[in-house]
Amino acid sequence: MGKNIVIDIKDLTKMYGDVVGIKNLDLKVYDGEIMGFLGPNGSGKTTTIRTCLGLLKKTGGDVNIFGMDSHEDSVNIRKRTGYLPGDFGLYNDLKVMTILRYLLSQSGVSGESSIKRLSELLELDLKRRYGDLSKGNRQKVGIVQAFMADQDLIILDEPTSGLDPLMQQKFYGLLREEKEKGKTIFMSSHILAEVEEVCDRAAIIRGGELQVVEDIHSLKEKMGKKLVIDFENGVEQDIFDMEGVEDVKIDGRTATMIVTSNLDEVIKKVSQQNIINMSLETFSLDQLFLTYYSRGGNR
């Protein structure tokens, strides 16, 4: 990962009338990294992305991409940027190849080898009419058009929406390939596992405001895991009084807690009791917001 800033968002605000879209958002995306942009639905992810691309007019602040102003130099920025919208349509009556050829020409790029390579990778039939495709296959068309012009920056809004798990893995592989080529990728998602899988860093947005920007490793550490243990004879709460264990709740014979560190110690201690069942869960994004932030995390 280089240290050149590719996307530099400073104090960005977007209002829809009196409604806040995003507020005073500051974010940097560096050259060659995969940055995840996490947030629940309606948190401002799409607004941020569309404002960066000049599809929405900012209310305040600045966005510089490749050192160029996103408003003044939007065409030059888009020459170097591929984009997959979160929600899109294309020409229903036309064949996929015809559409992709047209979109490639609008990027000022000729040659179809990248279209063929990407469609083979994603198992996309270029001869079919777009209107006849399933949701998943339409998403593949969106992915191909975002990557086909071999641009330096790829912005993806919920890229795996509609893709089956197998295809999601292929897509993650594609992201890694592009990263190896030195591409910068900025992708929004509401699926934490997805961000964990491919991203170097993640920014979390909620209610239009940036909550945290962390590398994935730190985020996972801070976030912890949810440990649920069913004891045969119940348990006292004070046995969990140790560093790295928070939010302990005892309900009958079941204990629920969040373990951010010292998992080994916890297991050793509880194993002295008779355990019927035990589960360790990674947080979903919703749980992250309900737990991490309610615990006064890095806000």
Binding site: R50, L53, G54, L55, S74, V75, N76, R78, K79, T81, G82, Y83, P85, D87, F88, G89, L90, Y91, N92, L103, Q106, S107, G108, G142, Q145
Partner: peptide, 14 residues
């Protein structure tokens, strides 16, 4: 209406 404006305007045309 058919949702392609975003993709079209994300290409290098003003």
């Amino acid at each position: 209406e058919e949702g392609r404006m975003d993709i079209i305007l994300s290409k290098s045309i003003s």
